[in-house]
């Protein structure tokens, strides 16, 4: 989802931000004074542990540090909240990115049980990988809007391209976790069964799954070799993946890179982003 006005939530974030500014200050050397964040307390009791877990893992602190090299034209808020649906969205009226507790609940449900693996996937990599994928996807929407990026294709696919491309610029462990987490997530979703469902501005789950594999493979053919070897990338599509990755790279360099502070970016690239201790 790319644009969904939630004035009540966003108003609350802004209010909280004003009242408790020191709480939201970034403490590391990766700072950007245009970025603020808030964990909004859920109304429903069952989401409290999810909020606490996200807080403990410093998800929004880390996200704001990760985004800090971006020279933004105005404020940008990062929020976790109870939304009433399993979703994450960027609100272009409020310049805010929201991660819903319901979505984390969904990812938890789909992921393999703790201590077990399913088809070779661990719970940690699925929960972490898919959560990072979702955040980067929404960050893609945010960047397209805030930086006035020209988007000729479907924006939802473009946001997926961001979510796959960005981790590939970091250490391979990050990229592999995101790509595999995303693969597992979409593998467990359904595709449309009626013609009219194809009116959705998103690709189908299968399309998004194959896109993710293809773009990862295009950027680093060895990174998810296990998935490729298991036959998840048909030869005909595999032949175009290097070209597709190159198009994404060119688009990123031409439209987003000029907004990036290279010194800060180097610091971001050298940090190990998956260091946070497991909560499970």
């Amino acid at each position: 989802m790319s644009c969904d006005a939630r004035p009540a939530i966003v108003g609350l974030v802004l209010l909280l931000g004003m009242m408790a500014a020191p709480l939201f200050a970034q403490t590391s050397d990766l700072t950007n004074n245009k970025i603020g964040f808030a964990y909004i307390a859920p109304k429903t009791e069952k989401y409290v542990p999810i909020m606490e877990r996200l807080k403990k893992r410093r998800v929004l602190e880390q996200l704001s540090e990760f985004v800090s090299p971006l020279r933004l034209p105005h404020q940008f808020s990062l929020v976790t909240a109870e939304c009433g649906e399993a979703n994450a969205y960027y609100d272009r009226l409020q310049w805010s990115l929201t991660l819903c507790y319901e979505l984390i609940e969904d990812i938890d449900r789909i992921a393999p049980e703790a201590g077990q693996t399913k088809d070779g996937f661990t719970r940690d990599e699925v929960v972490m990988g898919e959560t990072i994928f979702v955040l980067l996807h929404e960050l893609g929407h945010a960047a397209f809007d805030m930086l006035h990026v020209p988007v000729f294709g479907r924006e939802e696919d473009a946001a997926d391209q961001m979510a796959i491309f960005i981790p590939l610029q970091f250490n391979p462990r990050v990229a592999r976790t995101v790509s595999r987490g995303d693969f597992f997530f979409f593998k467990n979703q359904g595709d449309p069964s009626q013609w009219s469902h194809f009116a959705d501005e998103h690709g189908t789950s299968s399309q998004r799954l194959y896109n993710g594999i293809c773009w990862t493979y295009g950027g680093n053919p060895q990174l998810i070799k296990d998935v490729i070897d298991a036959g998840w990338l048909p030869k005909e599509r595999a032949a175009t993946c290097a070209h597709e990755y190159q198009l994404i790279k060119t688009a990123f360099i031409k439209t987003v890179w000029p907004f990036i502070d290279e010194k800060l970016m180097k610091k971001v690239q050298t940090r190990d982003w998956l260091q946070a201790p497991s909560e499970r």
Binding site: Q189, G190, W195, H197, S205
Partner: peptide
Amino acid sequence: EAKPHQLDNKETRDRAHEL
């Protein structure tokens, strides 16, 4: 109406589809 585009999966327009 309801052109059969049936796939190997059970549910359609799953909530996660809104991502």
